[in-house]
């Protein structure tokens, strides 16, 4: 089984055409940009605020767009056609994730420009952001595979959005209730922690642990995605 870029590109191009005609999804992409512009005008400098916008982009663009793309394929009965086509599981998942990935990165760059976020070490932060984007796309794919329609997908995404975009509000509770210590290991908090350390002048050697945690999350989500996809192929 050879990986054919052509098939993945065909899926990407088809999705791009489709989303550009789907106002329901394409306007969602603009929402975090509006937020970013407002924060930028308010002149907020704290890292946490920058990352609130970035985490919002992750859940709204990466997870939600991906989720509705997959859910729509299922709702319209086109996913089965893809699964029966010569494209392999990897090609389909890669092709379907590419559009959300490109738009996530593009929106983050624009948002960072609007809020005036300029990290000290672009390479480390960029790496962490790309890894997180992959993680959120995995979450979106998983939810898309589990839900039956776009409507259901937009409801399911809400708690995910709550946890991952506003997760930073939970940090004060950790000191109060030690049970909640595991929250620190959520990928969004790890990303914020990493960004804070980078801002304080840390190098790759200091932040490798945070990157590793994000990688573990990503790998776990994709293992689940492949398992669910294989199971869905049967029915």
């Amino acid at each position: 089984m050879t990986f054919s870029m052509k098939r993945s590109m065909a899926i990407l191009y088809k999705d791009y055409k489709d989303v550009s005609k789907n106002l329901y999804v394409s306007t969602t992409v603009l929402l975090p940009l509006v937020m970013a512009a407002i924060y930028g005008r308010m002149g907020i400098e704290a890292i946490d605020t920058h990352y609130m916008v970035i985490n919002m982009i992750f859940s709204l663009v990466a997870a939600y767009v991906q989720c509705s793309l997959i859910a729509e394929e299922k709702e319209k009965n086109t996913l089965r056609g893809l699964m029966l086509s010569p494209a392999s599981t990897l090609e389909i998942l890669f092709g379907k994730s590419l559009l959300s990935f490109i738009s996530t990165i593009a929106v983050i760059i624009i948002a960072a420009f609007l809020t005036g976020y300029n990290p000290d070490n672009v390479i480390i932060v960029g790496m962490a952001i790309i890894l997180s984007a992959v993680f959120y796309i995995g979450v979106g794919t998983l939810l898309g595979l589990l839900t039956k329609s776009v409507m259901e997908a937009s409801v399911v995404i809400l708690p995910i959005m709550m946890i991952f975009s506003f997760g930073s509000f939970l940090t004060p509770f950790i000191e109060k209730y030690p049970v909640l210590k595991f929250i620190e290991y959520l990928p969004n908090l790890q990303l914020i922690e990493l960004a804070n350390q980078v801002e304080a002048g840390a190098g790759l050697a200091d932040v490798w642990f945070h990157l590793a945690v994000i990688i573990v999350w990503t790998a776990a989500v994709f293992a689940l995605v492949v398992a669910v996809y294989k199971k869905r192929m049967m029915d």
């Binding site: 088809k14 055409k17 489709d18 005609k21 789907n22 319209k76 009965n77 086109t78 089965r80 056609g81």
Partner: peptide, 9 residues
């Protein structure tokens, strides 16, 4: 009979 199409395209 119950295959779908990409209706927006």
């Amino acid at each position: 009979l119950n295959d779908g199409l990409y209706e927006r395209l």
